[in-house]
Design a protein around this nucleic acid. Sequence first.
DNA 1: GCTTGACTTAAAGTTAACTCCAGGTATTAC
DNA 2: GTAATACCTGGAGTTAACTTTAAGTCAAGC
Lengths: 130, 130
Amino acid sequence: MNISQVSQKYGISIDTLRYYEKEGLLPRVHRNESGIRDYTEQDCGWVEFIKCMRSAGLSIDTLREYITLYFKGNRTLQKRKNLLIAERDKLQARLKEMQATLERLNYKINSYEERIVQCEKELLKKRKNK
Amino acid sequence: MNISQVSQKYGISIDTLRYYEKEGLLPRVHRNESGIRDYTEQDCGWVEFIKCMRSAGLSIDTLREYITLYFKGNRTLQKRKNLLIAERDKLQARLKEMQATLERLNYKINSYEERIVQCEKELLKKRKNK
DNA sequence: GCTTGACTTAAAGTTAACTCCAGGTATTAC
DNA sequence: GTAATACCTGGAGTTAACTTTAAGTCAAGC
């Protein structure tokens, strides 16, 4: 799979894919003889993982750290687990906050609904009175 | 209430409070005779609203737009409602994505748990064999 | 009356995360 | 064989959202 196919498939721009690789968020992607990226299944797996974690708000730095640990092998299992737990906890906190804000928005939207209806009623009244 | 009290109360830096005001996210905050900010209840209400919405991911631009509409009065009710609906929908989508990622992280953490236990077992085995 | 500390402003600087650009190479289509 | 297209790299530029700085004002304590 070449870079534009991967870009299409995951909805990540070509530039961003190269940027992630340069920054060490992806292990160096497989190349063909002439140096052109040819993403393996595994490469794609990483892309998907990064995309998912980025969209949940994990930073480039955090992901680089995770992947660095990953490539150091089994002796970093505990560290990786701890990193994931820390990020999970942060994510959970963000989610809770956002959930509350979602409800607040819904409440506000309903209030607007009512106020708009009210305004229209008053408009009609005024017209009648003329 | 002066700026540092408001900063304390809402956990927003003094600089950020001034920045929000300059950017038109807050209506111009009340000042005393010598030009020093003296936040009214209402000012605080806006601060709290902005904090909440920012933490849910609404952009500075979007919030400025909302507040601008707000100060144009009743004739912008429908526009404001539409803006809130659009933001609510975006937020809902983000939430769903993040929820899925949270579950993925939990799953991954569990897998690590198991792998770590497994690794320890193998270590013990090796020690026994020596 | 002067020092200290908290406030003021406008403007410049920083950071994270991209995004674009210039100059070059490889493959395919004619 | 040359034109078009898709890729490559290193490095510069951009954007959103702050954050810092410089230069100044003001009230309180000594």
